[in-house]
Design a binder for these strands. Structure first.
Lengths: 202, 202
DNA sequence: GGCTGATGCAAGTACCCACTTGCATGCAAT
DNA sequence: ATTGCATGCAAGTGGGTACTTGCATCAGCC
């Protein structure tokens, strides 16, 4: 029986799990944890509600499993590899900006909801922050090297914080402010310019 | 009968309203709109549940009234007045940074929850964004002047966006990243420095 | 064929919630 | 004193929700 998965469940089982997790994510992102009802999750997953409980035991455990499944770390090391191959620091920062925006957008729904849930639920599922935290650590290291080689100045921890802030807000506040949704390239160019050279007149 | 409030409700009535609104804010901020139950609101306000409905009709109307009451605009014009009296642009920007952080912190709870609710609820109570939107408009104007006088360069809309991003994220992501909660002054100094002069080595 | 384990199905339990109703109370203006 | 109004109180209604249970089905494996 599927020798590749020695101790794992049968293929069909894993499939059910994933369908449930996907449905959970959809609902969690659009209705929040309190708005996510087990019944609707089961329906959307094309699965009986009892099956859902047989798999995950509890609604809370289901939510935890979902966040664990979807908020996994992005391969930031790989991105940095690509970035390092670029010639100028402007190009490198722009590439990082693109990566930041793309990754944030991919999980925008989860991040927004988790941000509030963290407030809203005492025992917040903080695993939604695993990826950003990891990214920031690596970015701090990267900026540390840049400072060492004289391309940047300042405290790498604060630089990474400022840099990520620029793009974090760009994604998160997109709906609030005038949008200009298509302006990804422009946004990156401007933010990187400000980050590198400042807004002061020269 | 209390000639000062010709058509208004009696003093005791207004008091009840406010107590209910305060309790609603507390709960909304810590449990989200779905987690805010009329019963608990009434209890916390020291008021009968029926009274709550007699005042606001509907839970939704209560939430709307609460957000309208608490998310009112901050007097940004006044802040700009104070800012303009400062000598250097560094000082002015720092003062703006302080104001941004203070205002955001004062409504941090509402903002975080509203950010998710906007996703979570189709007809989001977008009035939570009134103040930030207003602030950004005025900040854009302010930066426009600075560009005209040659103290800043760039597009005022993007400058205001970048500037606010720096502080928005500082407040919103405080819990996520290493915190350094007390670092308000340091944060402002560093963010303003980056905004004005960039992080590029000089 | 017989066993095992994942699933479907239907009904049920024990809550919780938004919202209502009818009546009593107490305060304040007239 | 009487009237009006805000409020308290207690019970209730209709609906939703998390979670359970018992049984039938159907697949693959021995």
């Amino acid at each position: 029986m599927n020798a590749a998965f020695e101790s794992g469940p049968k293929p069909g089982v894993e499939d059910t799990r994933v369908r449930i997790l996907a449905a959970t994510r959809e609902l969690y992102a659009t209705r929040g944890s309190r708005g996510t009802t087990t019944r609707v999750v089961a329906d959307r997953a094309g699965v009986n509600e009892a099956t859902l409980f047989r798999h995950f035991g509890t609604k809370q455990q289901l939510l935890d499993a979902m966040l664990d499944y979807y908020a996994g770390t992005t391969n930031f090391a790989e991105i940095l590899e690509r970035v390092r191959s670029l010639a100028t620091i402007e190009e490198q920062l722009r590439e990082l900006g693109y990566a930041a925006i793309d990754n944030l957008r991919r999980k925008e729904d989860l991040i927004k909801v988790s941000m509030a849930e963290e407030f809203t639920n005492p025992e917040g599922h903080s695993c939604a922050w695993r990826a950003p935290t990891e990214a920031r650590r690596r970015l701090t290291d990267f900026f540390g090297e840049k400072i060492a080689t004289g391309q940047l100045r300042g405290d790498p921890k604060w630089l990474s914080r400022a840099f990520m802030s620029l793009f974090f807000s760009f994604v998160m506040a997109r709906g609030i402010w005038g949008d200009e949704a298509s302006a990804r390239e422009k946004a990156v160019a401007i933010m990187v310019d400000i980050f590198l050279n400042g807004a002061g007149a020269r």
